[in-house]
Design a protein around this nucleic acid. Structure first.
Length: 123
DNA sequence: CTTCTGACA
DNA sequence: TGTCAGTA
């Protein structure tokens, strides 16, 4: 499929699809007319990439983890340099920190909302 | 009409 | 990341 269809099917701007390729995350083939040619399996791959990106992993790391990614949303255990393992462990810890921060902010909002609700009810 | 590369208020 | 340009 060409970039337009992949974009629609993944909800990813073509601009980003080309960017991911530039970063070595995708390597689509080329049609005789020069257009990029994406295989079906790349639909899932893009999902993987976006998911990892959303969690905060830089494209640099994703490029190394990519060969370990499986179709759905799982990460298959395969090779993995000690360096990559350590990097991922640090990323995991950063995720924990973000989760804790989000939880605090959520609780703060809950408290605020409770106040607003109470005052409105009183009046 | 769709995609391509390169550039930047 | 968005977007505009000038092509093929």
């Amino acid at each position: 499929m060409r970039i337009g269809e992949l974009s629609r099917r993944t909800g990813t701007p073509t601009r980003l699809l080309r960017y991911y390729e530039e970063q070595g995350l995708l390597t689509p083939g080329r049609l005789p007319n020069g257009y990029r040619d994406y295989g079906e399996h790349l639909v899932d791959r893009v999902q993987q990439i976006r998911g990892l990106l959303d969690v905060g992993l830089p494209t640099r790391v994703i490029k190394d983890v990519l060969p370990c990614l499986d179709t759905p949303c799982t990460i298959t255990i395969s090779d993995a340099s000690e360096e990559l393992v350590e990097l991922l462990r640090r990323e995991r810890d950063r995720m924990d920190a973000r989760i804790a921060c989000l939880a605090r902010n959520r609780d703060a909002i809950d408290a605020y909302l409770a106040q607003v609700t109470a005052s409105r009810g009183a009046v």
